[in-house]
């Protein structure tokens, strides 16, 4: 009996310790404690966002960690990467290093290597690191564009306002056309109702000018949108982790584009007088109101700072 107990206790202890030691070794193997390491040096102007132990990634896979961060005498931050030998093949002479600070999640260093055939990166070399500050970067880029965007959009609204000159002109033109449609309307005008004749002349003169103005503003908006798209979604501006957030905005931009094409078409028609004016005005109204609601949507999608005090000039 006593021997039996001793055996069981011994077995328990031996097996447990074996398991613990085995697990420890396993963890150490996975953590690359036993493999040879390569050390690469990076430099940066600022240590902001850098931490010891932060992950170094290649194509989304962790290939190493930051081992040390130092501030040199001349104010440059030196970063030392510890890379297990099996991952060292990703580090080439032409490799680029970026510090990514994603909107959600911890910052990381990303390695991109355009040419895998290039010479391996030497451990003595020091490469400068670039910083991508996702959401802040996007906001910085898009803020001025959106501001212009807004102001152009407001311009369109002003032009197409019920009280605006354009609308008044259209209204007048409508009235005159109505008059003309009545059998004796034309005659009446021709026989010297000076007021009506004058009204017709001014309206007809003003209309193309106003339509041109509207067209200019609208094409202005088009330029702004193109600019915005290029800067926010273009190659330089592409930031993977905010893309989800922005893809919705992109869709809206596309819709806006279509609307504006429509507006331009409509104003062309208006100038040429090929369409029924009443229908045209409704179309413009509709296009403008959907444009402004789209712009509101875009604004709501991007977390911009909008504190604007009203200050005297």
């Amino acid at each position: 009996m006593k021997g039996d107990i001793k055996f069981k206790v011994g077995l328990f202890l031996v097996l447990s310790f074996a398991m613990i030691i085995f697990s420890a070794i396993f963890v150490m193997v996975v953590k690359d404690v036993f493999t040879e390491h390569y050390y690469y040096n990076l430099s940066s102007d600022s240590g902001d966002g850098l931490t010891v132990g932060m992950s170094v990634q290649f194509s989304g896979f962790q290939v190493g960690r930051v081992e040390r961060i130092e501030l040199t005498e001349d104010g440059i931050v030196m970063i030392r990467l510890k890379i297990p030998s099996r991952h060292s093949k990703w580090f080439r002479k032409n490799s680029k290093f970026t510090l990514e600070k994603p909107f959600i999640g911890s910052p990381r260093i990303t390695v991109t290597t355009p040419n895998m055939q290039d010479e391996p990166l030497s451990e003595d070399e020091t490469i400068e690191i670039k910083t991508i500050d996702d959401i802040n970067e996007v906001i910085k880029k898009a803020q001025p564009i959106l501001e212009r965007f807004d102001s152009v959009a407001q311009n369109i609204e002003v032009m197409t306002d019920k009280e605006s000159k354009l609308n008044k002109a259209i209204e007048n033109a409508e009235k005159i056309m109505e008059d003309m449609a009545k059998s004796d309307g034309l005659l009446e005008m021709l026989t010297g109702d000076r007021q009506s004749a004058q009204a017709l002349i001014t309206t007809l003169r003003a209309l193309p000018e106003l339509v041109d103005e509207a067209k200019n503003t609208i094409s202005d908006l088009k330029v702004v949108i193109a600019e915005a798209k290029e800067q926010v979604f273009g190659e330089e501006g592409t930031v993977p982790s905010v893309n989800a957030l922005l893809s919705d905005v992109d869709l809206k931009f596309k819709e806006l584009d279509k609307l504006i094409e429509n507006l331009i078409e409509i104003s062309d028609d208006l100038k040429g007088g090929t369409k029924d004016i009443d229908v045209l005005r409704k179309e413009i109204d509709e296009a403008v109101s959907s444009a402004s609601s789209l712009i509101k949507d875009i604004r709501n999608n991007l977390p911009f700072e909008q504190k604007k005090e009203i200050k005297l000039p």
Binding site: I5, K6, K8, V9, F12, L13
Partner: peptide
């Protein structure tokens, strides 16, 4: 100790 480990750990294992 052996007895105590037996009661504490092995029997409970």
């Amino acid at each position: 100790m052996v007895m105590q480990i037996y009661f504490t750990a092995v029997q409970l294992l």
